[in-house]
Design a binder for these strands. Structure first.
Lengths: 101, 101
DNA sequence: GGCACCCGAGATCGAAACGGTATTGGACGC
DNA sequence: GCGTCCAATACCGTTTCGATCTCGGGTGCC
């Protein structure tokens, strides 16, 4: 399980199409299809139902989608929080700076 | 940023040693050192202070550690939730099986 | 003061993973 | 039956990753 797989999964779940998701992710279709397969294989249960019109989220997929979004958001926040703390957690050393920002 | 980097980071933060963390992760020391460097580079700020006795968590690193643990736990829960839902969220569809449980 | 020992970091090489292109197989509409 | 649209597979080049080997920095000991 990788963050790329989670990103791919969210894109496919939201688009309902592997090809569409691939476009949104700026990658080709086969890699997305493959990673979704790998994700399902690792989790141990199908996440999508393959229909002639695209991909439909199965119940386990819907559950996973909720968690997947939370994970991606947490990753964003993690880096953001560390960066913000590096600049100054709450007080700035006030090096000839009048405004606190 | 990858889940492996996050796992490496947590291990180093908890051990205070790159070598120790590598042992715990069952990998060699250089890869861990490199991934930590890459993580710091991607976030844009140092997470550890390199001391002659090992690695010490800097304030941004402490903040990131909290988020990192949450991410890893969320990943665990995501797969677990999907698996549990695949077996049956609360009721089983009872596909003409003789025994209900 | 020199030497041995700890630590992390760098260089290099082989293996695994990833993504891209081309192609296949299944379902629907005409 | 054929063309179209969809995901899945085969195959290949590139990239990334990890392992081994080696180096530089700092400390403690004698």
């Amino acid at each position: 399980m990788s963050l790329a797989q989670i990103r791919y999964f969210v894109a496919v779940a939201e688009e309902g199409h592997v090809g569409r998701a691939a476009e949104r992710l700026h990658v080709a279709q086969p890699p997305v299809s493959r990673q979704i397969r790998a994700l399902e294989d690792e989790i141990g249960t199908p996440l999508f139902a393959r229909t002639p019109r695209g991909m439909t989220l199965l119940p386990p997929g819907e559950v996973f989608l909720d968690h997947a979004r939370a994970i991606l958001e947490a990753v964003e926040r993690a880096g953001d929080a560390a960066r913000a703390f590096a600049a100054g957690p709450c007080v700035r050393p006030a090096r000839r700076s009048s405004a606190a920002g």
